[in-house]
Simulated scan of single mutants.
Amino acid sequence: MSFAREASRAVRSTLVLWVLTAIIYPFVILAVGQLVFPFQANGSIITNTQGQPVGSALIGQPFTSDRYFNSRPSTTSYSTADPKKDESKVLQTGVSGASNLAPSNPALLDRIKGKPDPDLAKAIEGDIPRLQKAGVKPTADLVYTSGSSLDPHITPDGARAQIDRVAKARGLQPKQLEAMIKQNIDGRFLGIFGEPGVNVLKLNLALDALKPA
């Protein structure tokens, strides 16, 4: 068999495989995703009661007001920090990731426990004192950041710990919030993998739609 014929066969095989894997396969997967899983394929976008997109179910947002259930801490401020004003340099290498601080690192201990200082400008209010001052029992997820710093969930216990503060701020009954948390718990994937969690954005949207008893 001549070299030209072998080369022609190799070129044709390469073109066929390229069409199959680079064009047909991606378009088939795209079509299946749009037809079968349109919500997930388009970024799991959550909308408000007016139909306006307010975020993704997969990426957390910072909530700090007493009127809302707060998110867990984030080393990247949930990617909302201004890179030009990023004094702690958390966005210098990207917008997702953990701090990688060891448990004995003073910076981590200062953030969690706080750091009193005669110079008030240098004092640091730790997450635990801040939560305790607000009447919230500190849970692990309300104190420690996630591996990605974009975790959209808190634990059911972390949500329940904030009930009294949110109920007081909004004039609601704690039982209303307890029922709402129970309705918004995401179970384990396939009933086996992971732990139950509460999507903070979904929970707060449901909170805004809740009317006082």
Rank of each mutant, 00 (worst) to 15 (best):
P26K: 04
P26C: 01
I29N: 03
V32R: 13
G33M: 09
Q34I: 04
Q34W: 05
L35I: 15
F37M: 12
F39N: 14
Q40K: 02
N42V: 11
G43C: 14
I45Y: 04
T47F: 13
Q50Y: 15
G51I: 03
G51F: 03
Q52S: 06
P53A: 10
P53D: 11
P53T: 07
G55V: 14
G55K: 05
G55H: 02
T64R: 08
D66C: 04
Y68K: 15
F69N: 04
N70K: 05
S71N: 01
S71C: 13
R72F: 02
P73V: 02
P73H: 09
T75Y: 09
T76P: 12
S79G: 01
S79Q: 08
S79A: 15
A81S: 14
A81W: 05
A81H: 10
P83W: 08
K85M: 15
D86E: 14
S88K: 12
K89R: 11
K89Q: 15
K89P: 04
V90A: 10
V90E: 14
Q92N: 09
Q92L: 15
T93E: 07
G94L: 09
V95K: 11
V95D: 11
G97N: 00
G97Q: 08
A98P: 02
S99C: 13
A102P: 06
P103H: 07
S104C: 04
L108M: 14
L109Q: 12
I112E: 06
G114R: 12
G114I: 12
K115R: 14
P116R: 12
P116E: 04
L120P: 02
L120A: 02
A121S: 12
A123M: 06
A123L: 12
I124K: 10
I124R: 13
I124M: 14
G126H: 07
D127I: 15
I128N: 05
P129Y: 06
L131E: 08
L131T: 00
Q132S: 14
Q132G: 06
V136W: 07
P138A: 04
T139D: 07
T139P: 03
